[in-house]
Design a protein around this nucleic acid. Structure first.
Length: 463
DNA sequence: TTAGGGTTAG
């Protein structure tokens, strides 16, 4: 143990590494790194591992200025960091939606050239996450002068299918990779199958599932099955989805789980076959798969959305709680939405007020649905109360909700409420400029004209 | 370093 080893010895980079590993707070880890104990007398010799640990921690915590400063001192040292650390930095910038920083990191001089496909792939993925236009992704590939591998193609295929919506373009890339003798992996097929399913081309998705086994000797995994299951359920082909589930059950390695059952439960409700849900749940139990929160939520959503049977939905909530499953915001939000759609905004309001007692804090979705429900019912003063609570908690209504709210009050001609509302919404930045301009010009005519400037000041004020 | 499915809104 480091503490034992330290007895009578200097605090070395070995001890620092151990301490950094133990420290979960990134800021505290940084302080530790910058001033290690007993380091005042002589310059501390940092190991590559210490740099690795602290830079990874700072990257994960998105403490970028500190991370960059350590990268600079790493560069000034004689240490030669390896590519996985570079990848960690690049992906952190990608996750933070900072594509330019990701590109700069890729070329960071602290990391000795040359780059491998791994760094290039990490950069491509980071850029794709930031919705970088496809031509730029391809030019990054060209400029890199690195031979692409299967992963490179997988990332590009996914980006193409996501931005273009074009499976055919993705398929061209697949052909190109075969021409270049790059062997497709199970991820390649998973990506293509998902792309076919997303655009409703189920037949081609299933053809590919066959072809991957027969032509490429790659067995479909749980990802491939999950995409197919979703595709079938979206098309309402529940019978085929149920058969696919049986096919999964025959292959233990696929790990048939509650998420697949939740998909099926919801699909059965959607096509009006709720009578089959009970036996499906029993089957699931028989297979040792517990009905988790998501399965229960699927039931609640089915009763609310498809059956419009709120009593049954609340009974499903009770079942959920009795089975020891904790209801979450999604459970309650579904019920709030269900009540609002039936015009029962008072009940919805009561439920929201009761949520904290039930151990679940309302989230932004809860408030937005309640707010929208009240507006839809023409209860703008009630909605105003909810708005106050939202603002207090740092939430804002949706743009659409805010627009309907303002329009409603405008129609009612309540100038005083409109003044206060527009001001609050503007502070939240929840209202498009056209919305408040219209509202102000519509209702606030002569008597209120002088107030317009006040409103505008209010809208312009930063706080 | 890359892919999936599950519940609520938009």
């Amino acid at each position: 143990m480091p503490n034992v080893a330290m007895a009578g010895n200097k605090f070395s980079s070995y001890h620092l590494a151990a301490a950094l590993r133990r420290e979960h707070d990134p800021a505290a880890a940084l302080r530790l790194f910058l001033s290690p104990p007993n380091a005042a007398s002589a310059p501390f010799r940092y190991s590559l591992l210490c740099y690795d640990l602290i830079i990874s921690k700072l990257a994960a915590a998105r403490l970028f200025p500190a991370m960059e400063s350590l990268l600079s001192s790493l560069r000034a040292s004689s240490l030669q960091p390896r590519e996985p650390l570079l990848c960690c930095v690049i992906s952190a910038y990608g996750r933070a939606r900072l594509p330019a920083a990701a590109r700069r990191a890729y070329a960071h001089p602290a990391f000795p050239a040359p780059r491998t496909a791994r760094a290039l792939n990490t950069l491509l993925h980071a850029l794709a996450v930031c919705h970088t236009p496809l031509p730029e992704l391809f030019s990054v590939c060209r400029d890199a002068a690195i031979s692409p591998d299967a992963c490179t193609y997988n990332i590009l295929m996914r980006a193409v299918a996501a931005t273009d919506g074009s499976v055919d373009h993705a398929h061209l890339l697949f052909d190109e990779m075969l021409q270049r003798r790059i062997t497709p992996t199970v991820i390649t097929f998973g990506t293509l199958v998902a792309a076919f399913c997303d655009c409703g081309r189920l037949e081609e998705a299933f053809d590919l599932k066959e072809a991957m086994v027969k032509q490429y000797n790659v067995r479909p995994n749980a990802h491939v099955y999950a995409s197919l299951m979703k595709g079938l359920c979206q098309q309402g082909d529940v019978d085929k989805a149920l058969r696919l589930k049986e096919e999964m059950a025959l292959q233990i390695e696929l790990g048939l789980d509650s998420a697949i059952y939740a998909t099926l439960v919801r699909a059965l409700f959607r096509v009006g076959r709720k009578g089959e849900v009970v036996s499906l749940l029993e089957e699931m139990k028989g297979r040792g798969i517990p009905a988790n929160r998501v399965v229960h939520n699927a039931m609640i959503a089915g009763f609310c959305e498809d059956e419009r049977d709120l009593d049954a939905a609340f009974a499903a909530l009770d079942d959920m709680l009795k089975s020891g499953c904790k209801a979450d915001a999604v459970s309650y939000n579904t019920l709030v939405a269900g009540l609002c759609k039936l015009g029962r905004w008072r009940d919805a309001n009561e439920l929201v007020e009761d949520m904290p007692r039930r151990g679940c804090a309302p989230d932004v979705v809860t408030y937005r649905m309640l707010f929208d429900g009240m507006c839809a019912a023409g209860e703008f003063h009630e909605a105003d109360q909810v708005l106050d609570e939202m603002v207090f908690k740092g939430f804002s209504p949706s743009k659409e909700g805010a627009r309907k709210f303002v329009q409603g009050i405008e129609r009612e001609g309540d100038v005083v409420l409109l003044e206060s509302v527009v001001c609050r919404l503007a502070k939240l930045n929840a209202l498009e400029s056209s919305g408040w301009e219209k509202a102000l010009s519509g209702v606030l005519r002569d008597p209120a004209e002088l107030m317009i400037n006040k409103h505008l000041d209010c809208l312009r004020s930063p706080e």
